[in-house]
Every structure is written in C-alpha cells, then in structure tokens.
Write a protein that binds this DNA or RNA. Structure first.
Lengths: 193, 193
DNA sequence: CTTTCCTCTTAATCTACATTAAGTTTTCTT
DNA sequence: AAGAAAACTTAATGTAGATTAAGAGGAAAG
C-alpha cells in the first residue's frame, strides 16, 4: 500500500521517528471505491477519518427537492469526513462518494484518538491541518457571501486549476452553488476567458 | 483579570498542571473594546488569536457595494480570528469589531506557537477545538446550501437562542445572508412563532 | 456496433430575494 | 427632555439565478 502521500504531507509539519511512524502505519486501513460508489451515506455514523491517495472523492448534502450540493472535492492528498458526525457520533448529514475510481486510507476514531494521545507530534500535525481547514472554510464562506456566481466560478478555476479540467461541469456548478443550466448559460453568454 | 472562562473551557478537554497553567497565563494579554470599536481591520495582518470574556464581537466581510456580511458572532467564551491571515501573515479579509462593549484575551502568534510546542496538552486542546470549529463550519455551509432564508432564520434561533434576544435584527439578517428589509418582511408576513 | 444514459446547451418562464425609497419607532447622546 | 441617530417597517419595482422542457453530442455498457 502506498503511504508516501500521507507520510510526505505529515513530514511537512512534523518529523516522526521510526517508532512513531510505525505506530501510525499500524492503524491505517486501505480501501478502494469505484466511481459513484459511496464511502459514507447520510444518516450513517461517520466513525473514521479519510485520506485520499488516488482518484477523487466528494462530499455533498441533499436538499428537500433531491438536489445535491457539493461541499468539498477531495483529490489525492486531501482529507475528508463529516466532522460533526465523527465528533458526536450523530448521523451524518453529508454523503461522501467517489467521482473517479479512487483509493483511500482511513483511520478509525478510537485509533485516531489514541494515536493523538500517544504521539504528541501527530496531535501537533492535526492541530496544524485543522487550522488550515478552518482558514479554507472561512474563505469559502466569505466568497459565498460577497461574490456573485461568475466571480465564484473564476475563483474556483484559480484555486483548483487541476480539478476544473477533470470535473464534469455540473459538479463545479453544484460546488459554486448554481444549477448546471445557469453555469452553462453564464459561460456561453459572457465572454470570460 | 478574569481567566476563569478560558481556564474552564480548557479544563473541559485537558487538565493542565500548575506549571503549564502558569505558562499559559504568562502569555495572555487583556484588552477592552467599546461598542463599534475595531479589533481587527481588513487589510491588517491578524497576528493574534482572540478569546472573548465579556460582551460580543463579530467578524464580517464587506462586498463591493459596501454591504457587510457577518461571518461569526463571538459572545463570551468564543474564539475569533481571521485564520488565513493568522497562518500566512497575508492581509485579513475580515473585520472584527465589538457589537457590545466587550473584553477579550488575546495571544500573540509567536507565543501561541511556542506554547503549543512546549505544552502538548495545549496542542491537544487546540486540536480538539479546531475539530469542533470545522464541524461548525461544515454545518453552516450545508445549511446555507440546502435551506431557504426562513429555515436559516429558524435554525439560527434554535442554535443561538441567547443571541437572538440581544442582537439587532439587521445583524441577524446579515448572518443568515439576507437584507434587513427582507428579514423584516419575512417575519411580519409569515406566521412563524 | 448500437443503445442507453449522461452531460451540456438553449430558451422561455418564474421566483426568492435585492434595491430603492419613504415613513415610523426606538435608542443613544447630550 | 430634546434632538440625532440608529433600527425597523412597508411597499413598489428590479434581477440573479431557478425551473421546466427539449434537443444534441459523448461516453460507456451490453
């Protein structure tokens, strides 16, 4: 199994010794998800934290009309979970599924919490990536509050240039918060290149 | 100076010994902000993390028309900061000001980072409240994506019953993402009690 | 290879919410 | 207590983006 992405991402923030790395590796689980396959379903308890190693997952919520609203895309190197459900063991509001055939590592809650207690460097790593995630959520929220659809699209293109090439347009529409029809119209009417 | 709110909030997650508590207390700074006074202005570098001990702060962003969009209210016991600016030392996109006369504790970035390194329990505490913040941001984003204005208002009332009583209606409108005129109309037209 | 199912497009119509503009009430300030 | 400044209300009009519907190009599954 390929742990290099995960280990590299950790190494950017802390330096684990042989023993600490071993403890981490011992609790990793590996799984694959085919395109469209669920990794977490709304209503389930999310008792794991997921790190994508290949392909692309996404999280989304469904409104009362059945329309999907994408919260996050997670290509290789990204973490994804329903955090409230993870913390409180309440049913998840998010679905997580695979956009492409994907592989991911997951860590069970009990293992994750134990490792944080035993390996302060891991706790440190998680504190830091937690702060980064908060920064990302804050910015996303600001963007949604102050920008119109076209600007949010431009933003997305700039922020995720690799995703824009591979994602179906309707997924991007869902992420920026418009219908696929409106995004199509927007892109083919306004001359924005 | 009153540290009890902060210490109690930490004690919910970790138990600091005498020395650790002393190290924490030694880096705290105390400040007051009068109603409407700025604690952070857009464009400044946010080099501190703020914990409110009395009153109420809020963070907001301003759009191109000059309209304010509230991101967060922080009554006593809450943390508030522009996280991206804190992490990267880029100019803040958020303004933070006082809604009521307020008192707060702040910790400078260098002190905060040093304390995290020296006191693993503090790092642990921050990891945990970081996860909680992520859960909150995720839920807010889901709510914004899948609910109409009236439902977002009902949500707000349920989630922050104490705030609803004290906040001017226009602040609530800004938080849920509608104009004060529309919120007023909504509340006086629909019979929702 | 062809049938099926997506994905994307175009266009007409519709609606939740914004804008503008008064007027009224409440609350600060002095 | 008076005056100024916020906060809230009401109503007419405007608009970004939704909805509905239908058709066309692509990919994937048998």
């Amino acid at each position: 199994m390929d742990n290099s992405l995960l280990l590299n991402s950790i190494a950017k923030h802390v330096t684990l010794d042989e023993h600490e790395e071993q403890m981490l590796l011992s609790i990793l689980h590996y799984k694959k998800a085919k395109r469209k396959q669920f990794v977490l379903e709304e209503g389930d308890i999310s008792s794991k934290i997921i790190f994508v190693t290949s392909g692309c997952l996404r999280s989304y919520a469904v409104d009362k009309n059945g329309t999907e609203h994408v919260l996050q895309f997670a290509p290789a190197g990204w973490w994804i979970t329903d955090m409230r459900s993870y913390i409180t063991a309440e049913p998840a509001r998010l679905n997580i599924d695979a956009i492409d055939d994907s592989e991911y590592i997951f860590i069970n809650k009990s293992d994750f919490e134990e490792l944080n207690l035993k390996v302060p460097k891991f706790e440190r790593f998680n504190r830091i990536i937690g702060q980064n995630a908060i920064a990302t959520y804050q910015h996303r929220q600001i963007d949604n509050a102050i920008f119109a659809a076209m600007e949010r699209y431009a933003n997305f293109c700039q922020l995720y240039p690799s995703l824009i090439k591979t994602l179906p347009q309707k997924q991007v529409a869902s992420y920026i918060g418009v219908t696929p029809e409106f995004l199509s119209k927007m892109l083919n009417t306004q001359i924005v290149k």
